[in-house]
């Protein structure tokens, strides 16, 4: 009895903070979208009948999906190399991945502004090579947002997967090799299936992170490549359309929760180590 009381007492401040200042405000935001005087689904009808907003939602899903697929591919192969690297080199490589991760999103997105701009490094390089006659427009395209997002999330993917790959016992790889599997067969048939749960965790982190991002699409996509995050800001702080902003927020929450729950279910089913 006393123990139960002590446990509650110690966890109450943190619980209260999350319930009162996170769950209640976010629930209130979602609730207002159903309390529209024109009817409970009116804001959603507005959202989905606007071809502009539909395009924003679609673009966000597209950018997040492409980013996730590229980050999975790049992160997995790199993490595999890192996990097999000898001790000292491995620590250096991990530092090289941790450092960008600890550097802020604004700083890392800003770097791509210098690289991809009209007078940017990449354009100067291409002009010097003679590949192009006049500078290419690379900023404010979907591609520039994706490149910066991949840059943002690859370190996260590498670090998530290095942990998973290191957990795969060397014995398994040796067993596979001694039974005659080529290195690439071992990679596909032993390493990959065992890494699937980690790949799913990484995919969830990258997809939700890029789906809800603001700074990167704002800096590299601008008005032309509006995504859900920038649309939410524009509705709330520029147009002062709080109902419209709340609708965008509610859709973002639904997509995020659906992706997390859906992928966790798949992860549970696919985990070869379970059962």
């Amino acid at each position: 009895m006393l123990k139960r009381f002590a446990g509650w007492l110690m966890s109450t401040p943190a619980t209260l903070l999350v319930v009162l200042l996170l769950i209640v405000p976010v629930a209130a935001t979602i609730a207002t979208t159903f309390g529209d005087p024109r009817g409970p689904f009116a804001p959603y009808v507005d959202f989905f009948t606007s071809s502009f907003r539909r395009a924003v939602l679609w673009r966000t899903v597209e950018i997040a999906s492409i980013t996730t697929v590229i980050a999975l591919f790049v992160g997995f192969l790199t993490a595999f190399v890192v996990s097999r690297a000898p001790g000292r080199l491995k620590s250096i490589l991990i530092i090289a991945a941790v450092f960008p991760l600890l550097t802020g999103v604004v700083v890392r997105s800003f770097a791509w502004l210098i690289i991809l701009g009209k007078n940017g490094i990449l354009n100067n390089f291409l002009l010097w090579l003679g590949v192009t006659e006049k500078p290419l427009t690379m900023l404010y395209t979907e591609g520039s947002v994706i490149v910066a997002m991949v840059y943002l999330f690859v370190p996260l993917m590498i670090l998530t997967l290095v942990g998973v790959l290191e957990g795969i016992p060397d014995d398994l790889l040796q067993a596979s090799a001694s039974l005659g599997a080529t290195p690439s067969a071992t990679f596909r048939q032993v390493v990959f299936p065992l890494a699937v749960p980690g790949l799913i965790v990484g995919a969830v982190l990258v997809f939700t992170g890029s789906f809800t991002s603001y700074a990167t699409p704002q800096l590299l996509g601008g008005e032309r490549q509006m995504v859900m995050g920038t649309l939410l800001y524009q509705r709330a702080m520029v147009a002062f359309d709080w109902q419209g902003a709340s609708t965008v927020a509610a859709i973002m929450v639904v997509v995020t929760v659906a992706v997390v729950l859906g992928m966790t279910r798949i992860a549970r089913r696919l985990n070869p180590m379970s059962t």
Partner: peptide, 22 residues
């Protein structure tokens, strides 16, 4: 589970909700 919720809620949605409600 309560302490996992802040991760599930997009930060930008939390920011907007705090502006409105708090």
């Amino acid at each position: 589970t309560v302490f996992v919720l802040p991760i599930l809620v997009p930060e930008i949605v939390l920011g907007f909700s705090l502006l409105k409600s708090v």
